[in-house]
Amino acid sequence: MKLRTTIGTTLAAAASVLALGASPALAAAPAAHAATAATARPAATVHVSFAGGYKTVNGVRYYHFKHYVPGSNTTGQPTLVGWVSPNKTGENIKTYWQVWYHGAWVNVGQPAVATFKLHQNSTFDIFFHGLKAGYTARVGIAYQGDSKNSAAKFTWQYYHVTK
């Protein structure tokens, strides 16, 4: 049985705060996610994408999702899927979720970083909900490394919520 992780339940309240005009702290991708040249360990790789259609604008791939209403079903709900290689089943990944708000990327939720265990075969699937139509968001997945592999390269995945 494949487990599913939902971020929206705990972070939906934070997303609604954005609509009220609160000003969450800014955050950038942590530097700790870059593999260091000083290590001889091979870097792990995080393979990640959203399930759904996309459009590329200025070299950035944006996935488009309709506004999700909690309690309906998962149709249209942004779902980030992927895996870490080599196999790291049971180990942790970190998820960073930010929204473009008043000209800057701001964290969604407290804490700004959510930690999840990898499923069987080192896979993950994470649902996001709680953003209103018109928002653009980005999600980053980080694998910190272990005794056999150094940290995976950190990249952002972007999506836009439509009506």
Rank of each mutant, 00 (worst) to 15 (best):
A34W: 05
N107T: 13
L3R: 11
T39K: 06
G130Y: 00
G76N: 10
G140F: 00
A29P: 10
H64C: 03
G59S: 09
V139W: 08
S122F: 05
Y96G: 01
H64V: 14
K163Y: 15
A37E: 09
K88V: 08
Q120N: 07
T6M: 10
A104Q: 15
H129F: 13
P111T: 05
G140K: 00
D125H: 05
T39M: 03
T9F: 09
S150E: 04
G103K: 00
N87D: 08
V108H: 01
A29Y: 12
S16R: 06
N121W: 11
Y135W: 10
A12S: 13
A12I: 00
P78T: 13
A40W: 10
L11F: 10
V17A: 10
A44K: 02
F127H: 15
A35H: 08
Y63C: 02
L118W: 10
A19F: 01
A112C: 11
P111L: 02
V139F: 01
F128I: 06
S49Y: 13
P86N: 11
W83I: 07
A12M: 03
V81D: 01
D146S: 08
Y62H: 11
T74C: 14
V46F: 15
V48H: 01
S147Y: 07
H119M: 05
S147D: 08
T6G: 12
A37L: 15
G71M: 09
T36W: 00
T39E: 06
A112I: 10
G134R: 04
L118I: 12
T9C: 06
W156K: 03
L18W: 02
P30G: 12
A38H: 01
A44T: 01
A37D: 14
A27M: 07
G134E: 14
S147W: 08
P70H: 03
A44F: 03
Q98F: 05
V17K: 01
H64Y: 14
A27Y: 07
T56L: 04
Q110M: 13
K2D: 12
K148H: 15
Y62L: 11
G140N: 02
T39N: 13
T6P: 03
G82M: 00
S49A: 15
K2V: 13
N149Y: 14
F128M: 03
L80M: 13
V60L: 09
